[in-house]
C-alpha cells in the first residue's frame, strides 16, 4: 500500500477520529478548569482508568468475535467479595483465596461461553441472566453489607494496587497492568494468528468455521478471558479502596461497552481496535471527571455522558458511510 493511501486510511479510521475528539475534549476541559490537568487530578483519573479499561480490553476482543458480556460488572463485584470472605471469615490464605476467585471467574466465563456456543442462545440473554445470578450471589453471601475493610499490606496488594510517585504524580501499579495487557491485546488482535481468527469469526462465522477455525473454542476462551479480567479489575479496585462491596461495579457493563464502541469497535463484530478502546476508556474517564470539575450538577451528568457517547457514535456512522461511498 502506498504511503499516501495508508495515511488517508489511518485518518479515516474510527480510532483516529476518536483520538481527535479525545484531544478536543481534553483541551476544552483544560481551558474550562485549570485543575483538570493538575497532577492530583491526572493521578486520580489514572487511578480509575485501569479498572474499567482492563475489562474493556477483554470486551473488545469479545465484541470483535461477535459476542458481548453483560455480566462483567457483577463479576467485578463478586470476585473480591468471595476472596475477602474466604480470607476474613474462612481464615484462608490470601494467595489461595485469590486462586479461588480466579477459578470462580473462569467458571463464570466458561458457563457463559458454553451456553452461547453450544446451546446457541444469544450472548445478550445469557450474560444478562448471568449478571443477575452473579450480582444476586454477591448480595446473598454478604447479606448486602460491604465487607470489613482490608488493610493488611502484602505482596498481592502491592502487585495489584501498590502505588508509586513520579514527580508530583501518584500512580498505581494497576496502570502497569493496563499498559501491559493493552500491549498484549494489540499484539493478539493485530499480529497474532488468533487475532485473525477472532476478526474472521465476528465478520463471518460460517466462513471461519469452513476454513477450520475452531470458532466455538475461541469464543469460550474469550468469555473466560473477559470474566477473568473483570475479576482482576474488581480485585484491583477492592485493594485500592481497601474494601469489597457486593454492589461494586453496578452498571459497569454498559460503561465498558460504551468505551469499546466509542473507540470504534463494531458492535456487530468483525472490526475491533484495541487502540480505539484505550482512547475510548480515556475519553469516558475524562468526561466523567471533567464535567464534574466544570460544575455540571452531579445528577445531570449522565445526561452529558449519554449525549457525548451518542455524538461519538453518530460521527463513526457518518465516517463509515463516507468511506463506503468513496
Amino acid at each position: 500500500m502506498p504511503v499516501g493511501k495508508r495515511r488517508s486510511s489511518l485518518i479515516r479510521s474510527p480510532q483516529f477520529s476518536s483520538l481527535v475528539i479525545l484531544i478536543v475534549l481534553l483541551a476544552v476541559f483544560a481551558i474550562a478548569d485549570a485543575n483538570f490537568l493538575s497532577p492530583l487530578n491526572i493521578s486520580n483519573m489514572m487511578a480509575f482508568l485501569p479498572e474499567l479499561g482492563i475489562i474493556a480490553l477483554g470486551m473488545t476482543l469479545l465484541l470483535t468475535a461477535g459476542e458481548f458480556d453483560l455480566s462483567v460488572g457483577a463479576v467485578f463485584g463478586l470476585a473480591p467479595v468471595v476472596v475477602m470472605l474466604l480470607v476474613q471469615n474462612g481464615g484462608v490464605d490470601i494467595g489461595v483465596a485469590l486462586l479461588a476467585g480466579l477459578l470462580l471467574c473462569i467458571a463464570i466465563g466458561a458457563i457463559n461461553g458454553l451456553i452461547v456456543t453450544k446451546i446457541g442462545i444469544s450472548s445478550f440473554l445469557v450474560t444478562l441472566s448471568m449478571l443477575l445470578v452473579v450480582r444476586g450471589a454477591a448480595l446473598y453471601i454478604t447479606q448486602g453489607f460491604p465487607l470489613k475493610s482490608w488493610d493488611q499490606p502484602g505482596f498481592f496488594v502491592t502487585l495489584l494496587a501498590g502505588s508509586f510517585n513520579i514527580g508530583s504524580f501518584r500512580f498505581y501499579t494497576s496502570l502497569w497492568w493496563f499498559v501491559g495487557l493493552s500491549l498484549l491485546a494489540v499484539y493478539v488482535l493485530r499480529y497474532a494468528k488468533l487475532g485473525n481468527w477472532i476478526s474472521a469469526i465476528g465478520s463471518n462465522r460460517n466462513a471461519a468455521v469452513a476454513r477450520g477455525v475452531p470458532a466455538d473454542a475461541v469464543k469460550i476462551w474469550l468469555f473466560i478471558l473477559t470474566s477473568v479480567l473483570a475479576g482482576l479489575a474488581g480485585m484491583i479496585s477492592a485493594f485500592r479502596i481497601s474494601a469489597a462491596s457486593p454492589v461494586a461495579g453496578t452498571g459497569y457493563e454498559l460503561e465498558v461497552i460504551a468505551m469499546v464502541v466509542v473507540g470504534g469497535t463494531a458492535l456487530t463484530g468483525g472490526r475491533g481496535t484495541i487502540l480505539g478502546t484505550i482512547v475510548g476508556a480515556l475519553m469516558l474517564r475524562a468526561i466523567r471527571n471533567g464535567i464534574v470539575l466544570i460544575g455540571v450538577p452531579g445528577l445531570a451528568y449522565n445526561i452529558f455522558v449519554g449525549v457525548i457517547i451518542l455524538a461519538m457514535l453518530i460521527l463513526h456512522a457518518l465516517l463509515q458511510k463516507n468511506a463506503a461511498r468513496s
Partner: peptide
C-alpha cells in the same frame, strides 16, 4: 474445498488475510 455463496469470506478482513484464513 467447498465454496459457498456468501459464506466463504470474512468481509472485514483483507484479501490476503482471507486467502490464508485457517492456514496462516
Amino acid at each position: 474445498e467447498t465454496i459457498h455463496q456468501d459464506t466463504s469470506l470474512a468481509p472485514d478482513l483483507s484479501i490476503a488475510r482471507n486467502l490464508f484464513l485457517g492456514r496462516e
